[in-house]
Amino acid sequence: MFVEYKLFFWTDDDIMQQQSAIQAEEAGKIPFVGMILVLLLQEPLSSLAAEYKSGNPILLEKIKVLTEQYAAIRRTRGDGNCFFRSFMFTYLEHILESQDRTEVDRITVNVEQCRKTLLSLGYAEFTFEDFFALFLEQLESVLSGNEASISHEELVQRSRDQSVSDYVVMFFRFITSGEIRKRSEFYEPFVQGLTNTSVEQFCKSSVEPMGEESDHVHITALSDTLGVPIRVVYLDRSCDDKGSFSVNHHDFIPVVRDLTNTNSDDAEAIKPFISLLYRPGHYDILYPK
């Protein structure tokens, strides 16, 4: 049986309060560069331990476990859009480094299907076309060999430009909403468990607006609609009844994937190349070793 030692263990609310205090303190140290920075430099994972050096011992032990598998962290702004910003940068960074044109072709087809889904649901095209166009522009820019190609440094700077970043976030929010509405019967039990509202109202109030935090439903829908596997690693205060520490993760594997050039029996084919760290209320980017 799990026994909670309140003298040493913090609640998730405690963790969130500490995290908010840390973010507020760090925000004051970050200079303004044109627009508000929404994506920070990559840091060694040891910097995460420094945040909790006088805090919960369980979290410190779990960070030690994390360092066995992950080398670095890249922080995102805690404004409610952190999941989508983290996904945006990690996906584009992956394409930039891999130059996987097959993946770009595949995702472009999926994006066109997302456009058709929104139109079939009654969305007016002018409400989302600019967001789609900017995402496709960013996607094309990370492929080498064309006039618009950018470097990794330019990708970081562009992702920090809030006018660009916010548009891409809105693209993700629209296609996530479209996927949830399209498969409303599947998502309805989860949505009602979270908010006790209809799928339509959930999408209007918790998916499409900027600044609304993302949960399991959002991640599942985005992964499914784009066909991109995502790993979320959870940093929390849980431990087993023997007092040992492990870091839990969940892999969001798309239910519908283009298997034309993929061996479905190959575990590597569905291994997520996007790894995010979740702490209560916030997502950052993790870099595996």
Rank of each mutant, 00 (worst) to 15 (best):
F2I: 15
V3M: 09
V3D: 07
Y5E: 05
Y5N: 14
K6G: 10
F8E: 11
D14S: 06
I15T: 12
I15D: 08
M16P: 04
Q17R: 12
Q19Y: 09
A21R: 12
I22M: 07
I22S: 08
Q23S: 13
E26N: 10
G28H: 13
G28W: 10
K29H: 12
K29S: 14
I30G: 06
P31E: 08
G34A: 05
I36L: 07
L37Y: 00
V38H: 09
L39G: 08
Q42N: 11
E43W: 04
E43Q: 13
L45G: 03
S46L: 11
A49M: 03
A50L: 07
A50T: 01
E51G: 04
S54Q: 12
G55C: 09
G55V: 07
N56S: 09
I58D: 04
I58L: 02
L59G: 09
L59C: 05
E61I: 05
L66Y: 03
A72I: 02
I73H: 01
R75F: 06
D79Y: 01
N81Q: 02
C82Y: 03
S86V: 03
F89K: 10
F89T: 05
E97C: 01
Q99S: 07
D100V: 09
V104P: 03
D105Q: 12
V109P: 05
C114Y: 11
R115Q: 03
K116W: 05
T117V: 13
L119V: 15
Y123F: 15
T127W: 03
E129N: 13
D130G: 15
A133M: 14
A133T: 15
L134V: 11
L136V: 02
E137I: 08
Q138D: 10
Q138E: 12
S141K: 14
L143Y: 00
G145K: 04
E147Q: 11
S151Q: 08
H152I: 15
E153A: 15
E154I: 08
E154F: 05
L155C: 10
V156A: 02
Q157F: 14
S159I: 02
S159P: 12
R160L: 06
Q162P: 00
Y167L: 11
M170H: 01
F171M: 03
F172P: 06
T176E: 00
G178E: 03
I180C: 03
I180Y: 04
E185R: 08
F186H: 09
L194C: 01
L194R: 02
T195Y: 08
T197N: 09
V199T: 10
F202G: 00
C203N: 01
C203E: 06
C203V: 08
S205G: 07
S206M: 11
V207Y: 06
E208I: 11
S214E: 01
H216F: 03
V217R: 02
V217Q: 05
V217H: 01
I219K: 02
I219Q: 03
S223G: 00
S223Q: 00
T225M: 00
V228C: 00
R231N: 07
V232W: 01
V232D: 04
C239R: 12
D241A: 15
D241W: 13
D241G: 11
S246H: 10
S246C: 10
D251E: 13
P254L: 01
V256M: 14
D258Y: 13
T260R: 15
N261A: 15
N263A: 12
S264T: 11
A267C: 05
F273P: 04
I274E: 05
R279H: 05
R279N: 06
R279Y: 06
P280D: 09
P280Y: 05
I285D: 04
I285W: 00
P288Q: 10
